[in-house]
Design a protein around this nucleic acid. Structure first.
Lengths: 219, 219
DNA sequence: TTAAGTATGTGAAAACTTTAACGACTTCTG
DNA sequence: CAGAAGTCGTTAAAGTTTTCACATACTTAA
């Protein structure tokens, strides 16, 4: 419930979950300390950027030493609210939705898909990845107090479902459909558009040439 | 093969595929003209940003009129190399991989997954979404001259497969695994990390409050 | 205890991106 | 045809993000 810490740059905020994951990795490998340089190599973010990011939260490290993995990890666990599980709903149990259901977010990322909805009667009543699938007509009755939804429905259904989610009290939507959905201003939507990501990669490949390849084996 | 146009800002470049898709929509709806303001509402990008983005390519519009949809569309078709099909490989036919294979990129986005690879013998030889699945052991023999790969394998396999892809001549990888892969400097990798996107959304919800909801029906 | 080595945290600069504002020109209306 | 309305392209300003570079302080080892 702490709102005091409100001036972290967005770019930094987006990297926090990445740092958190790699700190978890280091911790389970038994590493006790880590420098911004080492972390940089692992997460592929410039070490100065990492130090700057951390510095927004105060002095987390020690000069000449680096960062204590355990301490940093517990700090980020608090910061990212990983002590309480975030419960989410998933709408649309197609291939993409199924991929999410089978992916065990809870593992090192206290997020749990609690319920799934689909329009296909054949899927209703089944369990996918341990999550019960309900019929989309029951959205309002069964979504309960969940405030985050993952939207993996066909584009044509996106806006209609969104309106119902908003009406049902959802405040954040992770939209995987190609549609740009309209929501009231107090609802947060993040888009992940797979086709666009692919096209963008192709565009960058053709128009933003990287260094030439090494002529001989580059180790 | 044109390389002359090399100073488009990256932020702009990432939005081009989005513009292209919405122009396609408008075109198939039979719209003849569009203003930056209308487009702005559709793609949720500030209209000044849209005008600025377009202006990097010269004067594409007409004052007092807007943009001619047909002209803009054909301009972007060229710019995004949509006249030639981009052929890609997909590695890892799990749920996420299957989602891609069933998604018809070719529809309004001249990109085609030509071949898929998987380690599971049961999947090898089958077709998913019209794409033949080969065994991962045959990667080198069967990948041909494809230069872009979508990586949807388990994280533990990511680096190994990546090394083989690079050796096989791939120059761009769309990495959906949580692993940050190492590649030589001439290879371009874009990461899409689903767990991190979800965590980031949750973080923003808790720490970056948006406007308060309207007290009454907000139209 | 001291010197050498290491790595943080940050001021300042550079780079990149977005947004505001408006002159210029086009289209529309009567 | 004239005035009103509309919309671009762009200059300039503001905002955001990254990167450099280094004084400072800790660690290590002899």
């Amino acid at each position: 419930m702490d709102m005091e810490q409100a001036k972290i740059p967005q770019a930094t905020a987006k990297r926090l979950p990445l740092y958190y994951r790699f700190l978890n990795n280091l911790h389970s490998q038994g590493k006790l300390r880590v420098s911004s340089k080492e972390l940089s190599e692992a997460v592929k973010v410039d070490s100065a950027t990492i130090r700057r990011d951390f510095s927004y939260f105060g002095a987390l490290g020690k000069k000449g030493y680096g960062y204590n993995v355990e301490y940093l990890l517990s700090f980020f666990r608090k910061t990212l609210d990983q002590d309480e599980t975030t419960r989410v709903a998933l709408i649309g149990v197609g291939n993409l939705g199924t991929a999410f259901l089978n992916y065990n977010f809870t593992k090192n990322n206290n997020t749990k898909i609690e319920i799934a909805f689909d329009a296909n009667q054949e899927r209703v009543g089944t369990e996918v990845g341990g999550v019960r699938v309900e019929h989309i007509d029951q959205l309002e009755e069964k979504i309960g107090d969940l405030s985050v939804a993952i939207l993996t429905v066909p584009a044509s259904a996106a806006q209609g479902i969104t309106d119902r989610l908003v009406e049902a009290g959802v405040s954040g939507i992770l939209n995987f459909t190609p549609a740009r959905i309209n929501v009231p201003s107090h609802i947060r939507v993040h888009h992940i558009d797979l086709a666009i990501e692919l096209q963008a990669l192709v565009y960058f490949l053709k128009h933003y040439p990287l260094n030439e390849p090494e002529t001989e084996e580059d180790q």
